[in-house]
Structure formats: C-alpha cells, structure tokens
C-alpha cells in the first residue's frame, strides 16, 4: 500500500421510500461494514436516506442540517470520509435534494442539486428548489472533492467547474431509473449506456477520478439500475458494480494517477476560463435581447425587425436598453 492508495466503498443500496429511520439504520450498518473493509471513503446514493419518488412526502422527510437524526449519522462516520444524501430544508424553508461530505464527525460541505429534471418521467422542479452553487472542497483524503447529484452530470459545465475549482475526485450520487431495454444497446440498457459514455468522457476531459454511486430497488413504477462505477483519470473504468444487485462494493484506486495523467495530458492547464466567461457573457446578453445576435437563431420577434440594421445596428438593442429604464 502506497500512501496515495484510497479504498472506496460504494453503497449501492435500495432505500425504502419515505422510511427515514430504516434507511438511517442501513447507513449506520454499512458505515461499519465499510470501516471493516478498510475503506477511506464511503459513498451513498442520491436520497439514500429517503428514497427518490417522494412527491408530497418530500417536505415530511426533510432534514435541517442540525437535525439530530443526521447528527447520529455524521457522528458515526468517525475517521471515514462519507458522502450521504437526503432532503434538506433550509432556514427559509426551501426543500433541496442535498449531498453532504462528512469528515471527522462533521459536515464539511453540502451540495444542493442544481439541475432538477422536470421532463419525461421526472418531476423534480415541482417538489424541490434548485441549488445555486457548484464548489470543489478540500478533503481529508488529500485531494479536492467535487460533489454532484445525478442530473447535475447531464450538464457539461458541472464536471468542468468542479475540476477547475480543484476537484481531483468527482463524485456523482444518483437515483437513476433504468429504461429502454433495447437489445441493441451496448449493455442492454439505454440508461446505463448513456451514463457510461458520460462518466468516461468526464474522467478523461477533467483528468480526474469519477466516482458514481447509483441506487437499486424500486419506487412505484421505476427501477433503479445500480451499475455504480469508478473511472480513472484516463477515462478507463477501474470498477463497475453489477446492475440491480444491492451491495457494498470496495474499489481501490491510486490517487497518484491524477498527477500522472495531468502531466501527460495537461488539458486542465490549457483550459481558458476567461475565454469561456467572455463568450458566455456575450451569449447571455444576446439571449436576453440586450445585444444583437449575429450567430444564433432569429429571436421571437422575427426577421423583419432586423431589416435595415447595421452590423452593430443596435436600434432594437438600444431600444431594449432604454426601455429598461422606464
């Protein structure tokens, strides 16, 4: 064992819908099992303490960060680093899907899910508030950690921001419902094929470890497919848990792989955040109608309004800006 070796325990569990106490007991049990395995980090899935398809139950199982039930779990982590996920109620009574990094018996970071899918089989925005922060944090593991929750990873900016902010370990906790069983998919499950593509891509492009913990079990109509994974900074999978099997899966990684990969492939060094911000500011202004869009689609006002405008012919744009002052 070199000092850079980290043993990760992936708790691929089947939370009981709405049964906070039962799920809490299961977490405590698996924390002990992970400790016995010699794990340094144990990761639980999205909403592992409550189950996923809560609907109006969400407010009933929401926890304030000082809730004694959460406190029991936090205290029990001891010398382990752990990622746990639950419904968080803020002081102003907004309800979030949250994941916390817990170390040394205290919560060192809370990530609130920023992207709430509300399409197809998802209805999260109806029941939850969206988080407003994406932060990497230092950890007792000796590397920066970035937390994300499920859909957060279907938005490119999230893994990119976490890596730029200093994460070398990107941890995504999920309650991903398996669907599309077409035999033509690489792994017989469309959802799994898509996720695997994303995680390998993010690991390679951010030259970071990607840790993915997805739940199993059934809430109502939907079944969660598991398939938790750890991907090396080269984009190569280190470990893939089986689909649908509940279990505590141990994976050993060498954190020094991050340095090796980043020296050989200095993608992060070459990132241009100032360029990205400049272009984003332009795009935001154009989408808001505050600048003429030279490259995108015609706005809802149609083509005619543009007629006769010069290249910066900000008649429309200027009118908008003036209009704001009224």
């Amino acid at each position: 064992m070199t000092p850079t070796t980290l043993r990760i325990a992936l708790a691929q569990i089947a939370p009981r819908l709405g049964q906070l106490e039962a799920n809490l007991d299961r977490h405590l049990e698996l924390l002990e099992a992970a400790r016995a395995q010699g794990a340094g980090l144990v990761v639980f899935p999205e909403l592992g303490l409550t189950g996923y398809l809560l609907q109006d139950l969400a407010a009933e199982v929401a926890l304030r960060l000082d809730d004694p039930r959460l406190g029991r779990l936090v205290a029990a982590t001891g010398d382990l680093s752990a990622v746990v996920s639950f419904v968080e109620e803020s002081a102003d009574h907004r309800i979030f899907i949250a994941a916390a990094l817990v170390e040394d018996g205290r919560i060192v970071h809370v990530h609130r899910k920023c992207y709430l899918p509300t399409y197809g089989l998802f209805d999260e925005r109806r029941f939850f508030a969206a988080g407003d922060a994406i932060r990497a944090v230092p950890s007792g593991l000796g590397v920066g950690v970035g937390l994300a929750i499920c859909e957060d990873f279907w938005h490119l900016a999230v893994p990119a921001l976490l890596a730029l902010d200093g994460a070398q370990l990107l941890i995504n906790v999920s309650s991903s419902p398996g669907r599309d069983l077409a035999a033509s998919h690489e792994v017989g499950l469309g959802t799994a094929a898509s996720w695997r593509t994303l995680m390998r891509t993010y690991a390679q492009l951010t030259t970071s470890f990607v840790v993915y913990c997805n739940r199993v079990g059934v809430d109502e109509s939907i079944s969660f497919w598991g398939g938790s994974e750890v991907i090396a900074p080269s984009g190569t999978p280190v470990f893939s848990a089986p689909f649908y099997d509940e279990g505590l899966y141990g994976v050993e990684i060498d954190l020094a792989d991050v340095r090796r990969e980043r020296i050989a492939l200095p993608l992060l060094r070459d990132e241009r955040p100032e360029l990205v911000v400049r272009e984003l500011e332009r795009i935001i202004a154009e989408r808001a109608g505050l600048a003429v869009d030279a490259t995108g689609e015609v706005g809802p006002e149609g083509v005619d309004l543009h007629a006769g405008l010069g290249p910066f012919g900000g008649v429309r744009a200027a009118a908008r800006v003036e209009g704001r002052g009224r």
Binding site: L17, L181, A182, A183, V216, S223
Partner: peptide, 25 residues
C-alpha cells in the same frame, strides 16, 4: 421486429424486483 428486441435478462431482473417491491410495499 429488430428495433423491438429487448435484453430479456435485464427485463426478467427488473420485473422480478418490481413484483417483489410492489408486494412488499
């Protein structure tokens, strides 16, 4: 039809869990 072919192993697994889950709940 080719586009309708499913992975029957996964289907059996999902359905078994679904049936057990519905009864248990």
């Amino acid at each position: 039809p080719e586009e309708l072919a499913i992975d029957t192993d996964i289907a059996r697994r999902v359905i078994a869990e679904f049936i057990r889950g519905q009864l248990r709940q």
